[in-house]
Design a protein around this nucleic acid. Sequence first.
DNA 1: GTTCTCATTTAACCATTTTTAACACAGATT
DNA 2: AATCTGTGTTAAAAATGGTTAAATGAGAAC
Lengths: 229, 229
Amino acid sequence: MKPKLLIVEDDPNLGEILSEYLGLKGYETTLSRDGEEGEKTFKNGDFDLCILDLMMPKKDGFALAKEIRSIDDNTPIIFLTAKSMKQDIIKGFTIGADDYMTKPFSMEELLVRIQAILKRSTKKEVEEFPNPFNIGELIYHYNENKLKTPSREITLTTKENELLKIFFENINQTVVRSVALKRIWKDDSYFNARSMDVYIAKVRKYLADDPSLKILTIHGEGFKLVQVQ
Amino acid sequence: MKPKLLIVEDDPNLGEILSEYLGLKGYETTLSRDGEEGEKTFKNGDFDLCILDLMMPKKDGFALAKEIRSIDDNTPIIFLTAKSMKQDIIKGFTIGADDYMTKPFSMEELLVRIQAILKRSTKKEVEEFPNPFNIGELIYHYNENKLKTPSREITLTTKENELLKIFFENINQTVVRSVALKRIWKDDSYFNARSMDVYIAKVRKYLADDPSLKILTIHGEGFKLVQVQ
DNA sequence: GTTCTCATTTAACCATTTTTAACACAGATT
DNA sequence: AATCTGTGTTAAAAATGGTTAAATGAGAAC
């Protein structure tokens, strides 16, 4: 599958050129025109790498990078900028950038730098979990939308099933709200988020049949399914 | 453990300066003076990253990088060079470089670039925080957001939990304000700092259940959790 | 095509967590 | 001592999440 790149650049010329060039080189590119648009796009997409201009209207590249890092501290970020001031470069990397290029730059160089970064980033593929999946006193049949507890057998609805799957795939790890929303609801919006909260409540009730499993709330971040002894 | 860096640089001045600077910054550095020596050293060592000058006697940086890649295509490589020709840069990355810096460069920038690369390459040894963690009369379950004291069981909020974790990870050491702020609040700003002060007060109240634990204020620096007898 | 059923979304209200604000005090600086 | 900056404390405001029930919508059954 083509790696997905998010390009956030307010100069329409450069943006188009970048998008087209990288598109030709085998990437799937999405172009946003300012920081705020970039943030929305990032939240609703699933990108392998972000290329951010530093000076942009509404929200600059540093601010956007911070937002991105607070959602996900793994997706690589490359900054593009006209400024080549040392302190900016240091700041960029401190925020969590993976590379920093000063305009004007060579497209070809950008390309090889992107390749070098992607070579290493390889987002961890979620391993396929066994079906049925045994955990604690529960047996979860993802394929059949079923959850068996010591006392009953629950037939899950589609959304319940998807949500439960994400939790079992990420046991003891935080499931970020926006990530789950993008995966199940395809869109991170206010109402979808509230809908998800309703489903969290439902799933919590099911899991209550095994007292060793709990879904904790990570305020402002997401949820975490933990198994205690 | 300190990451190990191999520096191959024929200019004795630059080599020494690099080695010393990066040594001060917490790396274990080994310096070789030409490509052939560099190759031998690489074969006999176990390095986390290589910094190679491009123009060197006996064996140039490209040739050395090829040797390194034929032995191991994982160890990151950074090229240093006086030439900034586009074709050289492309060639460097094509051979398998991870970064390419043109002399003269800023030490600080080299450092942050090294950090950015190592952040991705090092097989993340997940420093497992003992869970539960016993200290004095308290039992701290980080995974469950719980703190058990002799008299009660406290369910911690997300922020309380993260703050407490930092303190327990750094017992008897100063936790610098800005470090904790960046880690928990993602941003060191006035209001976040005040918010943190509010949480310090909350956490102090919880710890008061064990009189041997105290959070001291290090004025202008941060805080320190100390355990007295 | 209409009705029924059930999954899903929206809405309203409540609870908790986090941030902001205000004021008091402490330590450092002059 | 006067002043500045940094921290302690408390309460109110704002944001986020929990819960329940009604509204909507989509597919199955009639």
